[in-house]
Simulated scan of single mutants.
Amino acid sequence: MGPGNRPLDLEWLEDFLALAESGNFSRAAQARNIAQPAFSRHIRALEEWVGVDLFDRSAHPAALTAAGRRFQPLLEETLAQLESARIKARAAHDQAAASLLFAATHVLSLTFFPQWLGGLESQLRLGPIQTISDSFHACEDLALQRRVQFVLCHGHPEVPGRLDEAEFPMLRLSDDVLLPVSAPLAGGGGAMHSLDAAEAAVPVLAYSEPSGLGRIMRARMRQVFGEGSSVPTLPQGVDIVFTAHHAALLKAMALEGRGVAWLPRSLIAAELKSGALVAAASAEWNVPVEIRLYRQRADMAPAAEALWTLVQERPPGSGGR
Results as ranks from 00 to 15, higher is better:
176 D>P: 04
300 M>H: 02
199 E>K: 09
261 A>D: 08
143 A>H: 01
163 L>R: 05
299 D>C: 04
264 P>D: 08
70 R>M: 12
13 L>M: 14
197 A>R: 12
207 Y>G: 12
273 K>G: 10
50 V>D: 04
61 P>V: 06
304 A>Q: 03
174 S>M: 04
278 V>T: 10
194 S>K: 06
194 S>M: 11
23 G>S: 10
100 L>E: 09
57 R>F: 07
12 W>Y: 07
200 A>C: 06
215 R>A: 15
59 A>F: 01
65 T>F: 02
140 E>I: 08
249 L>I: 12
248 A>R: 00
99 S>D: 05
246 H>G: 12
58 S>I: 03
291 I>M: 07
302 P>C: 12
257 G>H: 04
163 L>N: 05
108 L>M: 05
238 V>Y: 00
96 A>R: 12
84 S>A: 15
209 E>S: 12
20 A>M: 07
125 R>S: 15
56 D>Q: 04
99 S>L: 13
13 L>P: 02
93 H>I: 14
131 T>K: 09
159 V>E: 12
176 D>S: 11
131 T>W: 01
146 R>W: 00
95 Q>H: 06
159 V>L: 09
148 V>I: 13
312 Q>N: 10
121 E>W: 00
303 A>D: 13
169 P>V: 13
165 E>C: 03
71 F>W: 09
229 S>W: 01
86 R>D: 14
113 F>Y: 13
280 A>D: 04
314 R>T: 03
207 Y>P: 03
17 L>P: 03
232 P>Q: 09
126 L>Y: 01
204 V>W: 02
100 L>K: 05
32 R>I: 08
114 P>L: 12
290 E>N: 10
79 L>T: 09
309 T>S: 15
147 R>Y: 00
241 V>G: 11
122 S>Q: 14
245 H>F: 11
292 R>D: 09
309 T>W: 00
4 G>H: 11
301 A>E: 14
140 E>H: 01
103 A>W: 00
185 L>V: 13
108 L>Q: 03
177 V>M: 08
128 P>S: 13
